[in-house]
Computed example of a mutant assay.
Amino acid sequence: MSLLKKPATQWVVLGLINAACIYALISSPISFKKNVGYHTNSHQWLEDQNQLNTEEYLTIGEDRLTLSAIESLNGKLRNATVSADIIRSNQGNLEIKIASTKLSQDSELFAIDKMPDLFFRRQYIGQEGSTLNYSFLPTSDDNTVCFYLHEFGRLRCMNN
């Protein structure tokens, strides 16, 4: 009789461990704070040895994501603001649909011969109705958010 109790006890313990793991996955906190502005600066060297400087701001609300960027190249500035509706949100993942894009006009900053890859990625982001998928990664700092943008293979970290 004691032989039957040991395997039953082991199965109960294993079941509790599995249930605890599933609960931890389901109830884990989202990796970003809603309605908080995140910010980052980046620098990219172009083929002609000029440097493109970018300052980005990201805010994620209940059902809206807004990304604003200021870029400078050779003393010229360009602004871009992208607003998107959140289609799906779950445990660190967001699927968004671009609702509107507002761009300042400066052909020098988006000269296709200087940065073709960057130009084509921006064409997709600027297209209303495009969908993007973000996966948020855990960070040790509550003031930092890191995400991977699947459509571009881009990893970005920002601070608030």
Rank of each mutant, 00 (worst) to 15 (best):
A8K: 08
A8V: 13
T9R: 05
T9L: 14
Q10M: 15
W11G: 10
V12L: 14
V12Q: 00
G15L: 08
N18Q: 09
N18L: 15
A20P: 04
A24H: 15
A24T: 14
A24N: 15
L25D: 09
P29S: 14
S31M: 11
S31Q: 14
F32R: 06
K33C: 13
K34G: 03
K34V: 12
V36M: 13
G37E: 15
H39Y: 14
H39S: 11
T40K: 03
T40F: 03
N41R: 12
N41E: 11
S42D: 12
W45P: 00
D48C: 11
D48E: 09
D48M: 04
Q49A: 10
N50P: 02
Q51D: 13
Q51H: 07
N53I: 11
N53K: 15
T54M: 01
T54L: 03
T54Q: 01
E55C: 01
E55P: 00
Y57E: 12
L58G: 05
T59G: 04
G61C: 01
R64Y: 08
R64K: 15
L65K: 00
L67I: 07
I70C: 02
E71P: 00
E71R: 06
N74K: 10
G75A: 10
L77G: 01
R78S: 03
R78W: 06
N79L: 15
N79E: 11
T81I: 13
T81C: 07
A84S: 13
A84Y: 01
A84E: 00
A84K: 02
D85P: 03
I86S: 04
I86W: 00
I87D: 07
S89H: 09
S89F: 09
N90T: 15
N90K: 12
N90E: 14
N90A: 15
G92W: 06
G92H: 11
G92A: 06
G92S: 08
L94N: 02
L94C: 04
L94F: 02
E95N: 07
E95K: 11
I96T: 06
I96L: 09
S100V: 00
T101I: 05
K102L: 10
K102A: 03
K102M: 07
S104Y: 11
S104P: 08
S104D: 07
Q105V: 10
D106T: 01
S107Y: 02
S107V: 08
S107G: 01
L109D: 06
L109M: 10
L109P: 04
A111E: 15
A111S: 15
I112S: 06
D113G: 03
K114Q: 12
M115A: 10
D117I: 07
F119E: 00
F120P: 01
R122V: 06
R122G: 10
Q123V: 13
Y124I: 13
I125H: 04
G126S: 10
G129W: 08
S130G: 06
T131C: 08
T131L: 05
L132V: 04
N133R: 14
L137H: 08
P138S: 13
T139E: 14
T139N: 14
S140V: 14
S140Q: 13
D141G: 08
D141V: 03
V145P: 04
